[in-house]
Design a protein around this nucleic acid. Structure first.
Lengths: 239, 239
DNA sequence: CGCTATGTTGATCCATATCAATAAGTGTGG
DNA sequence: CCACACTTATTGATATGGATCAACATAGCG
């Protein structure tokens, strides 16, 4: 039940260094961060953090995947999915404020926990790290704004079409590719019900989208693109 | 037509200093920022910045008000309203990336423009300023997340009820208060049509909300609160 | 004082949610 | 390896929130 807790083995250092946030910082500030850090292995479906609780650690997902969800009045929605290697809940850590989302492992996951106070201390000391944090936060902010535009300006079918095109790119650009997670959660991420997602998929059949389980094939790229009207100011999640 | 452009008069310094972002920084880095800055006066309904364009200046709204809107495929939505004294489009400035939203004056507005490169230069030089930027960005990020939760987890009537309670607080907490902007735009901010907003107001009549033009009176505070189910993790925009 | 933009109301349509039933996987223990 | 339970996906029927269209009222504003 209880996950194993151990101090960070040095073998993990290179992986963590790959994360933008830590890539450029001075070696000794990096090690200062690592000294206080832990690594834990979690089974699937474990609630790592709970909405509303105070934030003590910056989390770095090393392997596995984590779902960020929010709820209100008995309803729940998936806000984002974290994939390795990246950090999550940086903003709460920085502001020393309660989490706005809960985090739950989807698969068996390996996660590094860096005490928030260490992050803040090294931040004050290392310009390069400070700059990296600013860049990261600005990026996160812009990501949510894009997602908000997606929600407010598009119908669910349009959101799905654009999601498929984004996912296709990420998967390498071939006509056929796999959905990265189950439809149930995809529906929640896109802000709709599973039933509605099923129907949206069927509706996109008219534009050459074929679905077989988690396997998607885009039979007429142009037609789907004409329908989706992708916009870098909404769909490009790299800037 | 063309607004008057002048270098920043020193009389504006104290106002700008009031903004969190600039409040704590060293005097000489503050002045370094101000030296390159301009102040402009704009008439109402002027498009200050346009979605998709590169960002060259950090904007500080001194007086007036500014609407941030996004559009796609002929549709448009209001993302936020900026009120004095605060900055906007910080994230785009930091990332040196295109604006995700357009900005349009609502009233006659006085706006300071600080060259983005100066912001980045002073950032590298002044720890305190760097910390302030991080705090500000984290706050902006959390604000959008809250707004996203509001959108995904609540019906339009629930969003309106909670908006009214927030606005009531900001106005001082009395039962009667005024809407801060026209209903047309309020509808857009809340993610609905003007017609639907009208009906949502009528629907809230059952919970003791009386509307007369822009004047709102909450006749039964408890009843509305029971309906609204406000949640600090969505509705408290101070943390 | 009229003009134009904004707000309201009603009728209708459409997108999406909900409820219900079934089918198809997926994993578990015997 | 199969049988069982359990979750997920699909499909249909229906309800409802919200959008759209149209008419009218109203309020600012030149």
């Amino acid at each position: 039940m209880c996950p194993v807790r151990l101090t960070m083995p040095e073998s993990d250092y290179p992986d963590i260094r790959e994360v933008h946030l830590f890539a450029e910082m001075a070696e000794d500030s990096f090690e200062a961060l690592m000294r206080g850090a832990y690594v834990q292995n979690f089974p699937p479906q474990i609630e790592l953090i709970t909405e509303g609780e105070p934030s003590d650690f910056l989390h770095v997902l090393l392997t596995g995947s984590v779902d960020l969800v929010s709820s209100w009045n008995g309803r729940e929605t998936s806000m984002a999915t974290v994939r390795p290697i990246s950090t999550f809940i940086l903003a709460a850590t920085i502001r020393d404020a309660p989490y706005l989302m809960s985090a739950r492992t989807l698969e068996k996951s390996r996660i590094a926990l860096i005490p928030s106070q260490d992050v803040r201390a090294v931040f004050a000391d290392d310009h390069v790290f400070a700059r990296a944090i600013v860049t990261e936060l600005a990026q996160c902010y812009r990501s949510v704004i894009k997602s908000q535009k997606d929600l407010k300006l598009r119908t669910s079918r349009e959101r799905l079409a654009n999601y498929l095109l984004r996912q296709q790119r990420r998967a390498g650009g071939a006509a056929g590719f796999d959905l990265e997670f189950e439809k149930r959660r995809l529906a929640s991420v896109l802000g709709m019900t599973p039933e509605n997602l099923s129907r949206a998929f069927k509706g996109l059949g008219a534009y050459g989208v074929a679905v077989d389980g988690t396997r998607i094939t885009i039979e007429d790229q142009q037609d789907l693109e004409r329908f989706a009207k992708s916009d870098p100011l909404i769909d490009d999640h790299t800037t």
